[in-house]
Design a binder for these strands. Structure first.
Lengths: 107, 107
DNA sequence: GGGTTATTAAACCTTATGGTTGAACGACTC
DNA sequence: GAGTCGTTCAACCATAAGGTTTAATAACCC
């Protein structure tokens, strides 16, 4: 599961891929539809899709000559579960932290 | 904020750095203390700390000849907020989610 | 001042990322 | 069968990541 988190967070560390996921949240998309909004070659966008797929964030199926992609949320859920380990840091202790930062700024 | 998410997710995409964050969750740590558990040169570990710092996940202050690092959870909170956009994909409890978001907004 | 300790910097190596272009392949259209 | 459309592959380039080693800096101890 460690490598899975590596791949998931790595895949999320790019705005093009995050935008693709946002598009996939609305429904299935072909590679071309995923690529279109981005000022980038088709082949470049295709590589991003492959990275999403290798990270397990996206499943694809053939439909004629196009490939339809669908969001697989399980890896996202794992990443979110990992992040929530620290949830109490940004709820209970965020106030205290901001106080410290404010004090530093005063200097 | 887009670049911030890039940096945050990029920083999280490495098990060494995630382990460092877990250590920092227990309290302040020096660079040496963060580096010790990892089978890696000191300089290598120091680079990881610098990446955490550049991503805004860690703050440091000088304490004599050592540097003490502390977790700054705000970027983690942003990353988690982004991930939770898809929460309804992995749970059926959309109502509960919106309640949590509404509560957070009130603060 | 001299030695030790904590940390960074510099130089280097290897591999991965993010991007390009151009050719190739498979499926549809006619 | 010929052309076109969606997609991938291969080769290439530039830059960043992840690691090393050796030297340099800065603070403490005596």
């Amino acid at each position: 599961m460690v490598e899975r988190l590596d791949a998931t967070f790595g895949a999320l560390a790019d705005p093009t891929r995050r935008a693709m996921l946002a598009s996939l949240a609305l429904g299935e998309r072909s590679i071309g539809e995923l690529a279109a909004p981005h000022a980038m070659s088709f082949a470049g966008a295709s590589k991003h899709v492959r990275m999403l797929e290798r990270a397990g964030l996206v499943e694809r199926r053939k439909a004629g000559r196009t490939q339809l992609c669908r969001l697989d949320p399980r890896a996202l859920a794992e990443a979110d579960a990992w992040l929530r380990q620290w949830e109490h840091f940004w709820t209970a202790r965020l106030d205290a932290l901001e106080q410290i930062i404010a004090e530093r700024k005063d200097r």
